[in-house]
Amino acid sequence: MTAETTVPADAEPHPQGIAIILFSGDLEKTWAAMILASTSASLGMTTKVFVTFWGLQTFVRPEKRITGTNWMQKMLAFMARPGIKYRKMSQMHFLGMGPWMMGKLAKKYGVSSPAELLEVAQMMGVEFVPCLMTMDMFGLTSNDLIDGLGEPVGAASYLADVASGLAPIFI
């Protein structure tokens, strides 16, 4: 029997939560966002991830290779493969060699992949919220996005979450 470690009674924990803006579609940044989101949920904190610009690409169904209605939207979709398993590194990508090595190292050192962390985060109640403006600009509909996302909203909704006490994190 060892001594119990606990917080003093007068320091009742008040976990509020975090509101992440996932702006980037880079592999490393996506990974960091997924680590923070799943950990935050594990700490019992309210956790929201507002996905916008390139970050939204991570949440487009991977089988959707061409999205959008005009040629520019279609071309942008064609140039950037969507889905969490196809994120590119911001540097040292080397035609996929970088991510391949990162994946190998992650496995070797017991680090869960972004896809695994996303699944866990969703299971634990993290809310992933698509940016409505980005959806409009890229010609995306809710059918193009993976299941389990929140209602698409704008910047005011994100800021309202921050105003109500969630700590803002921009990735």
Binding site: S38, T39, A41, S42, L43, G44, G110, V111, S112, M124
Partner: peptide, 12 residues
């Protein structure tokens, strides 16, 4: 398992 999975699995 590496960070953050021990904590995540424990929370579950």
């Amino acid at each position: 398992l590496n960070c953050p999975m021990p904590i995540v699995k424990t929370a579950q």
